[in-house]
Design a protein around this nucleic acid. Structure first.
Lengths: 343, 343
DNA sequence: AATTAAAATTTACGCGCGTAAATTTTTTGT
DNA sequence: ACAAAAAATTTACGCGCGTAAATTTTAATT
């Protein structure tokens, strides 16, 4: 890149000794031109400073190289990690990911659909808000743009859904907790935004009944995405009233569990598997921070590496097959038990 | 939006009864057309489904309505929160923010500069990687695009810098710790990526000497952004060797402190201000999770509401004044002490 | 060397919009 | 009611590239 700046493709075609349509073809797909031609273009590219104008490129193209990545709440490290993985894979595949967060609000999610529509993305990876999503808006969006849903299941929308097998993961940790101590109570949000929460609720009840225990559920009041705060408040309430029928509590997700740990600490209750402990606390998700809680949190991984990988692969397959509205596929990945000191 | 779809501005101009150039003017700046005209356009807009093609719009425009927001590591909730604030403000001001994360790697940061250049953004809010940034790359970028730097200070680049007053915040918490107990040791990373770390180091030494104490610094080995892990490892090391000259440790940031708390827990050391405690731990930043550690973490807020607000305002002023390369301004906001149970 | 297939070139048009200049219409001030 | 100012319209061109069709060049095959 020692040479002068090139202002457009015409000029670049001239200095590289190739015709403009061929250069255009190269930028759309380098492998679509002959080896020797590719080399000459790339030679010129290293001598001159030129990049095609992306706006002009995308103006008439039916299919841009953009991929939309939408998560419900980016300030949650769990989604931030997922987004990071997806972004990486899209770049490696030659796409330009654009990351968008719904910030937990329906209005934002709807705005995002609008923005994405006008970006004409090749495809979208969407983790919807869930219960608070505008279902018809999601539906209409999925009709316009090839969309793979992940994390939060919504009925009858998108080309595919990839998520976690909550039945498996919850029944696994319930069995573990029952085997190693008292049967767990279950703490969840009163009005969970995430559909996974409903599945986990049901899975908990089923697992308990299968093992011959009475399910016992605490519903934390509060809405929004401040899960730690909500878990903390409900934790204080539950522990104060001494209303627990067992010394073990399974939380619907790690962030609630982190709140409960804080509440237990404040109450002076020792948490852990040891004999000197008054309480066992377990979570779900293997949140990035759950290794560093005190005590470290026993939980179940969501195999987000697998989830992101499969989501991205599914979308890519969708994009270059061009097939739409094939039968919707649903893929669920099992979780793994992560035994730490809290339960 | 009951009417049919409009495919371009020409068609929309026809159905709204306004000429296309005027409609174009409206979309560039609604306030630039007469009240009555605006109303007619917005009437048509509510009856017909039309949005201008953003690619065609931006193709020839000197100034797009895009604003780039670049953070060094989005999986850190601290930056996620900041990004959320900035995004909101940009949208409210009629801009389209595009969020990008350097993922802690120089190569990504450089790629981001490339992408942003071709997006021709009106301006960029950049929190650089810091020590690992390619300084000349940042410099060249800032020459091409109006850029406001925040969080991490880099010398002589950008139109302005907005950050935290580390001297003030560190000396404040050192004074607090000395007043309420033993003088603190300081835990930092051996090779911190963030320039703030250097200032905090210096501020710690200065504050200790001013108060007549001997500074004592632990340098945690390890690189990258896994601060909790690094703090945890170094915490184990320090606490095992019993090499601390005092029972109080101030960490360069909250995430290191969270790691130290985990180490102390594992070592069976009670952390807190109470008389029964063996260790006091303090952090810096008021990380979103530090309220929920066990014990809750004593720390110093970074006033990120003020930082984001000022950053955005500065950029907007820059954009609509059109002035470049004015004298660089540096704005630092003071922190506030957050006294919790850990120190 | 002749045949054929593949790739590159030439030519030409269009996309959707920005924008400038000249003109006409509308609004404002008195 | 009239002149001046402001806004809208008409006309026209260009941006940088995608892309189609017809033609020519190059490479692969026998």
């Amino acid at each position: 890149m020692d040479g002068r700046k090139i202002k457009n493709m015409e000029e670049f075609a001239t200095v590289s000794g190739i015709s403009r349509p061929t250069v255009s073809k190269y930028f759309n797909d380098p492998s679509s031109v002959r080896e020797s031609t590719r080399k000459r273009i790339e030679d010129a590219l290293s001598h001159y400073d030129y990049r095609p104008n992306i706006y002009a490129m995308n103006q008439n193209r039916r299919l841009t190289k953009t991929i939309g990545v939408v998560v419900p709440y980016l300030a949650d490290p769990f989604f931030a990690e997922i987004a990071r993985n997806i972004e990486r894979r899209c770049i490696d595949a030659g796409f330009s990911p654009i990351l968008l967060s719904s910030h937990g609000q329906q209005s934002f999610e709807i705005d995002i659909f609008e923005s994405l529509r006008s970006l004409k993305p090749a495809g979208v990876l969407l983790a919807p808000l869930g219960r608070t999503s505008d279902l018809t808006a999601v539906e209409r969006f999925c009709e316009d743009v090839p969309t793979v849903l992940f994390d939060s299941f919504l009925p009858d929308v998108g080309e595919a859904f990839i998520g976690s097998n909550n039945d498996q993961s919850i029944s696994m940790i319930v069995e573990y907790l029952c085997r190693t101590g008292q049967a767990p109570c279950f703490l969840e949000m009163e009005a969970p935004v995430n559909p996974n929460a409903k599945r986990r609720h049901a899975a908990y009840v089923a697992a308990m009944e299968k093992l011959g225990h009475e399910p016992h559920i605490f519903k934390a009041s509060g809405t929004g995405w401040e899960f730690e705060e909500i878990g903390y408040r409900e934790g204080l309430r539950v522990l104060s009233k001494n209303s627990m029928p067992s010394n073990t509590i399974l939380c619907s997700n790690d962030r609630l569990a982190i709140g409960v740990l804080a509440a237990a600490y404040e109450k002076g209750l020792r948490v852990g598997i040891g004999s000197g402990s008054a309480l066992r606390v377990a979570g779900h998700d293997d949140h990035p921070f759950s290794r560093f809680t005190c005590p470290p949190l026993t939980t179940v991984t969501q195999d987000y590496a697998a989830i992101t990988e499969r989501s991205v692969e599914t979308l890519f397959a969708l994009i270059d097959s061009g097939v739409r509205n094939a039968s919707r596929t649903t893929t669920l990945f099992d979780g793994h038990l992560v035994m730490r000191a809290s339960a």
